[in-house]
Simulated assay, not measured.
Amino acid sequence: MTNDRTNVDTMVIGAGLGGSCQSHTDGGHRTGTGNGDARRIAELEREVQELRRANEILKVYFAKELDLELESNQSALAVEKPGEPALAEMSPAAPPAPARTIRWTAAQPSTIPDPPRPMAEFRALGPIEAVVDGQLLDLGAPKQRALLALLVSKVGQPVAVDVIVEELWTGNPPPSAITSLQAYVANLRRVLEPNRAPRTPATVLRTYGRGYLLDNHVVEVDVHRFSERASAGWEALDRGKPQQALHELEAGLTLWRGQAYAEVADTTYVRPEVARLEELRLSVIEGRCAALLAVGAHEMAVAELEAFTQAHPLREYGCELLSLALYRAGRQADALAVLRTNQRRLAEELGIDPRPALQHLENEILNHAPALDWRPRPGGGA
C-alpha cells in the first residue's frame, strides 16, 4: 500500500512540474503513463500564455490607434521571452488583427451653411424691377417689362404662351406676336443671367412645356418678404410685443413703391393678386397703427389714421383705432364724432349698422371707462 501511494504521488508531482514520469506498476500490472498527461498540460499552459500575449499586443495596437495612454504593463512586451514563439508563429487560436483601421477625430462644431444667395431679386410692389449681383437691370421695352411682371406674379408656376400673348396684346395679338415674345424672353434671359454660357439651359427664366416660368428656387421676390413681415408683425402684436410688431410691420410697408405689378395690374390674369396684396397692405397699415397705440404714440397714430380713414372711410377697424387714438390724446368729442360719422355713412351707403365693437367703444367713451386708458406694459412692451 505504501509503495502504491508513493507511485501515485510521484506521478502527480511529475505531471505538475511538466516533467516526464516513468511507467508504474501495481502488483506487476501497468497502471498508466504520465508522459501524455504532462504534455497536454504543458500545451494548454503554452496556449494560455500565447492568448494573453496576443491580448496585450491588441491592446497596444488599439491604444496607439485611439491615441490613448498605454497601460504600464506594455513594457513587458518589449522583450520576447526565451522559448516563446515569435508573433508570426503564434497559434491560429489567437484572434486576428482587425481588417479595418479605427480612427477617431476630434468632434467638429456643427455649422449650418448659409442659404445660397438668389440669382436674381425681383421687386413687384410698384413698377417691376430686377437686381442681379447688386445691380439694377435695364429691363427694356414696355412689353418686355410687362412680360416679366406677368411671370413674377406667378413665380414658381408656368404661364402658358397663349395666356401671355392674350394679356400682353389685350386680346388682339399681331401675326408676329409669338416671334416678339420669343425675342423678349431671349433678351430677359440675357440680362438675368449675364454669365450663362452659350447654348446652355437657362436657370432663372425657364421654358416649361408650352410656356415659361421663373424658378422660385433661385429668385427672391419682395412680395414674399412683405407677406413674411406682415405675419411676423401680427404674431408679435398677438403676443403682447408691440415694439417688435412695429418693427416688422414698418419693414414690410417700406417695400412698397406704388401699385403692385404696375405694368400688368389691369390684366385679367393678375388683377386678383393685385387686389389681394392691396387688402393685405391696408391691414398692415391698421396693424401698425394698433402697435403705435400699444406703445403710447397716440398723437402719431392720430395723424396716420386721419389720413387713412379719409382714403378708406368704410374700413371700420380704422375708424375704431382713430376714435381710440383721439380719446387717448384728450379729444373725446372728436372721438365720438368719428364713430357717429361712420355709423351714418354705413346706414346711408350700405344700409347696415356698425359692428358691435364700435358700438361698445362709443359706450365706453361716454362713460370714461378706465379700460380705454393707456398703460405701459412691463418691460416696455417689447
Rank of each mutant, 00 (worst) to 15 (best):
A294Y: 00
N195F: 15
R328A: 05
V270I: 05
L151D: 03
R257K: 07
E250Y: 04
E71I: 13
S72V: 10
Q157N: 04
R30K: 04
A202R: 07
V221D: 06
S176C: 06
A333Q: 15
R239T: 05
D4F: 08
R190A: 10
N172V: 11
T207Q: 11
L255N: 01
V132Y: 05
G34W: 04
A38G: 07
V159D: 02
L51W: 00
V191D: 06
P82C: 12
P85L: 10
L150Y: 02
L147P: 03
A265N: 06
E286A: 07
Q244I: 14
S283W: 03
T203L: 06
L192V: 09
R103S: 11
N35A: 03
N3F: 12
V302N: 00
V295S: 00
G330Q: 09
C21K: 09
L255W: 00
A141V: 09
A369P: 12
L213D: 08
Q243Y: 09
L139P: 03
L188I: 13
R52S: 12
H217S: 11
P173D: 09
L214T: 00
Y184C: 08
V191Q: 13
A329I: 06
M300I: 14
D114A: 11
L280Q: 10
P142I: 02
I102F: 15
E320V: 07
A183Y: 14
V219P: 02
V221E: 00
L125F: 08
P354N: 11
N35M: 10
D162L: 05
P158M: 03
L350Y: 08
